[in-house]
Nucleic acid binder design. Structure first.
Length: 677
DNA sequence: CAGTGAGCGAGCTTCCGCTTGACTT
């Protein structure tokens, strides 16, 4: 029997279907060894030697792997074909080698039978042919790639486990955290909020002309210029994460708009009618990031919800793997999609050449395919069975449409732009577009209404019925949402598909950020921690930090650099900064929210402070007075036990509940308002 | 369901990335 080890049990099941009885497939369930949680686990004095342990929750799975390996004649490591996958394979090999050494000792054999005989295979799609091809061409473990992963792991540990304690000390809160990914995520939100705070909204005006031709059709056109000078102004702002552009105009107030309107002189002549064909191509099939963005935009799902639903769809065999940064589609799917589209809609909906998409992201690791339906012909209405509900169906529908549409013909529009000139040099423009061929929009649906404009001809004279001024104000850059933050993180190469959703939970749990109406806003704590870290560790908090790290990891993977010097080069100055910061940095005091109330025990002022579990009411006379009280929205109901206020609270798992403000003196609590009696 | 901050200085917290159940109400 030959043992094949993959990462996910779903993949194992699929492989079992393809392969004969001589193969047994087991899943590792991701990484099987890691640095210990309770200590640094990196020997900074001795070449950053990491000490790995098998985490408690992985022992069961590791024992299953050991057991299977003992019974196998051969072990084939078939984890994902990327940096993390190579490392998983390496650690499994180490664990099994140790086992074999022990077995050999026990049996007093001088050779360990399966020692070092692990074969490594990698495949990018789970098809019978791809797997057979991979099995026919096994390789050995890529130690350089493993070292690149080790460098990544060690760097993240060093950064996270030395910055966090510094925060505990300097901000007097022993539950804070910092890291290469989360701290930059918070910084993005903080920098954006500052941009919004300092943004000065300005008034500007636009003018629309309503024209009548000889027919009864009215034509509305926007005033764009006078004697070639444009009114519209594009404002460009340099933000932390790139450029932001917004619109304004040189018409700054109502008075100016009125002067322009009074100055408009007939005749108003159609000076140009430009018709052209505009083509639109379908977008690439989903990656984790784009799926989260679209599910947020169209279905109002959080990143977490999207991933939970996708996980289920994946486990039930409806979609391919949902944690991916690849936009590749298997050849099989492409040809099936073309056949499906041709058969159901007609040959003209199939492009002459099949579409291939390129992954933009430089850091993409391409271990998986894009997210797509496993069966082209299975539309969303065919999956609503068993545990699957409407949300599963809606997400599946998004995935199905996007993947199938990606292999369809382009949509063609007839676009028309009409130019109208006044007798004294004012230029109005309007444009419309009419769909000529739906192409992929047949499946995706149209996101914008067609704008049909009346037929007019060059030289035709129009009457200006009315000129309508409209007031606007310039808009600040928008706050981040989960979706737009994921988008930016992905663009900057920060974080991975498996971590986008957890990042959101972390920065909210740490109370660096609050989510209001889908918008992410920094808390006082978020501002304070970010300012502190930016002041003392500007390079770690900078966007290019991860990009530089990735370059180094690539160099390690292809043998140009060794991992220890790469880490040493970072760690030396970093460690110096840490030491220096312990010495020189002042303690950071957070602004406290005042409430107009005296302490019932000592009479000093009460304030609102932030603790591990959120805001709480505390006495300014601390530590002499240790009075605390729950902070929370009052439910306006007296406590049935003690008559105190009932307050809306959140449990550790984030669920709302009602508790007595006199806790712990009074322990009354209830889940529902109706239960308070 | 359920605690919070200081400083003493025992015994903990904290990172990112790969995977699912195992938990609770």
């Amino acid at each position: 029997m030959k043992l094949i080890i993959v990462e996910s049990p779903t993949k194992a099941r699929t492989l079992t279907r393809f392969l004969g009885k001589e193969y047994r497939i087991e899943a590792s369930m991701g990484h099987v060894r890691d640095l210990p949680k309770s200590s640094l686990g990196v020997d900074v004095e001795h070449d950053f030697a990491p000490s790995y342990i098998i985490p408690r929750d992985k022992t069961k799975q590791v024992n299953a792997l050991k057991d299977a390996a003992n019974k196998a004649d051969e072990v084939i490591l078939a984890t994902d074909p990327d940096r993390e996958g190579e490392a998983i394979a390496f650690h499994i090999a180490e664990i099994l080698n140790e086992m074999n050494d022990k077995n050999a000792k026990k049996k007093k054999k001088d050779t360990a039978s399966a020692q070092g005989t692990f074969r490594r295979i990698a495949f990018h799609e789970i098809t019978e042919s791809a797997i057979n091809e991979a099995l026919a061409h096994p390789r050995t473990l890529d130690v350089q790639l493993v070292n690149a992963q080790q460098a990544r792991r060690v760097l993240d540990r060093l950064v996270g486990y030395t910055l966090s304690p510094l925060l505990w000390k300097k901000l007097s809160k022993r539950w804070l955290s910092a890291g290469r990914v989360q701290s930059v995520a918070v910084r993005l939100i903080v920098e954006r909020e500052r941009e919004i705070q300092k943004f000065e909204a300005r008034e500007y005006w636009t003018i629309a002309g309503q024209f009548a031709g000889d027919g009864k059709d009215d034509l509305t056109a926007a005033l764009v210029s006078k004697d070639g000078e444009k009114y519209e102004k594009t404002l460009v702002f340099e933000l932390f994460d790139g450029k932001y552009t917004t619109t304004s105009s040189s018409i700054v107030d109502g008075q100016s708009a009125k002067l322009i309107i009074d100055d408009l002189r007939a005749p108003f002549t159609v000076s140009a009618v430009d018709k052209k064909e505009v083509k639109r191509n379908p977008g690439a099939p989903y990656t984790t990031s784009t799926l989260q963005q679209d599910a947020a935009r169209k279905l109002y799902f959080s990143s977490k919800k999207t991933m939970q639903i996708a996980q289920k769809l994946y486990e039930e065999g409806y979609i391919t793997y949902h944690r991916t940064d690849s936009v590749n589609l298997s050849e099989k799917f492409i040809s099936e999609a073309r056949e499906y589209v041709g058969g159901s809609l007609g040959a003209h909906f199939v492009p002459a050449e099949s579409r291939r998409f390129k992954t933009k992201s430089k850091v993409a690791q391409e271990a998986h395919e894009a997210i797509r339906p496993t069966v082209v012909g299975r539309k969303a209405d065919k999956i609503g069975v068993g545990d699957l509900n409407r949300d599963h169906m809606r997400l599946y529908e998004l995935i199905w449409k996007r993947a199938v549409a990606s292999q369809m013909a382009e949509a063609i529009f007839d676009s028309t732009t009409i130019v109208i000139l006044s007798g004294n040099g004012y230029r109005f423009e309007t444009s419309g577009s009419v769909i000529k061929f739906e192409g992929f929009l047949k499946i995706m649906g149209r996101d914008a209404e067609e704008v049909v404009i009346p037929a007019v001809s060059v030289g035709q004279e129009l009457t200006l019925r009315e000129a309508i001024p409209t007031q606007h104000t310039t808009s600040p850059p928008p706050r981040y949402t989960e979706a737009s933050l994921v988008k930016t993180l992905e663009e900057k190469g920060i974080g991975r598909p498996s971590t986008y959703a957890p990042i959101m939970s972390t920065i909210v749990d740490r109370q660096y950020v609050v989510k209001e109406e889908k918008k992410l806003m920094p808390t006082e704590l978020g501002f304070a921690v970010t300012d502190f870290l930016v002041q003392y560790f500007p390079n770690v908090l900078d966007l290019p930090f991860t990009a530089h790290m990735e370059d180094d990891l690539d160099a390690i993977a292809n043998g140009e650099k060794k991992w220890v010097p790469v880490i040493a080069e970072f760690y030396k100055p970093f460690h110096e900064s840490i030491k220096k910061t312990y010495d020189i940095a002042e303690k950071v005091k957070l602004a406290e929210e005042q409430i107009d109330e005296k302490c019932p025990t000592c009479g000093h002022d009460l304030v609102i402070r932030t603790g591990k579990f959120g805001k709480f009411v505390a006495c300014t006379n601390f530590p002499e007075c240790t009075y605390t009280r729950q902070y929370g929205e009052k439910a306006n109901i007296p406590c049935p036990k003690c008559g105190g206020d009932i307050i809306v609270k959140k449990s550790k798992r984030g669920k709302k509940f009602y508790g007595c403000s006199n806790y712990p003196t009074c322990t009354f609590a209830a889940w529902k308002k109706e239960d308070i009696k």
